[in-house]
Nucleic acid binder design. Sequence first.
DNA 1: ACCTGAACACCGTTCAAGT
DNA 2: ACCTGAACACCGTTCAAGT
Lengths: 232, 232
Amino acid sequence: MEDGDGSREGRIPLSRQRVLDHAVAVADAGGLASLTMRSLAKELGVRPMALYHYFANKDEILDGIVDQVFSEIELPSPGGDWREEITRRAASARSVLRRHSWAIALMESRSTPGPANLRQHEAVLATLRGAGLSLEMTGHAYALLDAFVYGFAIQEAALPFDTNTTPEVVAAIAARFSGGDYPYMQEYATERAMKPGYDFGDEFEFGLGVILDALERLAGPMRASLPRGAEA
Amino acid sequence: MEDGDGSREGRIPLSRQRVLDHAVAVADAGGLASLTMRSLAKELGVRPMALYHYFANKDEILDGIVDQVFSEIELPSPGGDWREEITRRAASARSVLRRHSWAIALMESRSTPGPANLRQHEAVLATLRGAGLSLEMTGHAYALLDAFVYGFAIQEAALPFDTNTTPEVVAAIAARFSGGDYPYMQEYATERAMKPGYDFGDEFEFGLGVILDALERLAGPMRASLPRGAEA
DNA sequence: ACCTGAACACCGTTCAAGT
DNA sequence: ACCTGAACACCGTTCAAGT
């Protein structure tokens, strides 16, 4: 994974973007704990202090990679069918957060949204308002949709198994419930979760569908796209 | 906040529970980053290495405080009205995660659930199954409900303002949107979020209500409580 | 059994310096 | 402007030791 010989010749020069790209790669590969100023510098073929020429401190880098992750999420386009657009954006957010699950932990602690985050907000608001939702209903819809998307990402990240967990590991987990202390968990595990074809990920489509159906019903008949507040 | 004079006389002896209680208090007061083996030891009036007599390492303490947080969430009782019970449990989870918002970041990274977490799962499954939901619908309902609860907690934790933010701060945030780049965000901010009486927290009741209404409809007429899988 | 002291390999970051 | 070296005050943790 090292990409430098240490010599300055032929080195791609540092830049904010290059630092952030490598920071994301380091976190993807080894988790958030493995991302240190020193490990990041080594990955870039540079001394730790060089990073401080582009970022005031590590927190600024963390803010940067969170926004980098947001920038990977597809924006809904306010022109199209709102349900289709919102679904596409939600699915994209889910897959991005699955790729970079360390980002979820960071989202909780940083409260200054970056530009990609703001663009994301703007596009979702535009899509919902464009579909004719009232301001109040737009707020309801957005909070509910994003809570679901982020919460689902937490659940997926915390799952003790993913799609390619060995049967041995699954059996070990199941053994914890077989003492009789957790009859309902045991029922769910044996009668459903361990059945072939079961995939927790399918709950995403189900949940999102439930939410969108409800919003559609609550918002009344959707008007065709009539953008407001953007006519200036 | 120091509670010891350093002398061993009269010191409450260490124990796993005492360590965890203080660890939660430290994280509540100063955030997760402020919780170090050394700061925790100082808070307990003890040397850092004493902690290793009760926990193998810091990770075990982190697992412990996550489960401690889960233990604060009210369990639904399978006997009562399912909607009421699930609502009470969700509201409790939200307020607990608001009190300990650092726990959200930890939930993502630890995948071995503690006893309080398991009890929580068992009680929710019992409540849903007791209400007559099929195994499949129970899985759908649980995933959707918890995604919403956890996701809402992230959103609340990431909010740049809480209920007692000064108007100056609010104005500073609003100023970022007034450049014309974000017309829909500006509309939402000025026409709704900054209006007196607006409270993001109200979206919790709305979203939970939408989800419960949908589940009620999908599950068909609820049978009276008929526990299954626990008759042994 | 319960706690401590010294030490090791790490952190983020400052400050002064090199080119 | 861009990067470095040495140093400081921290980390988690090992190991051997005290009572």
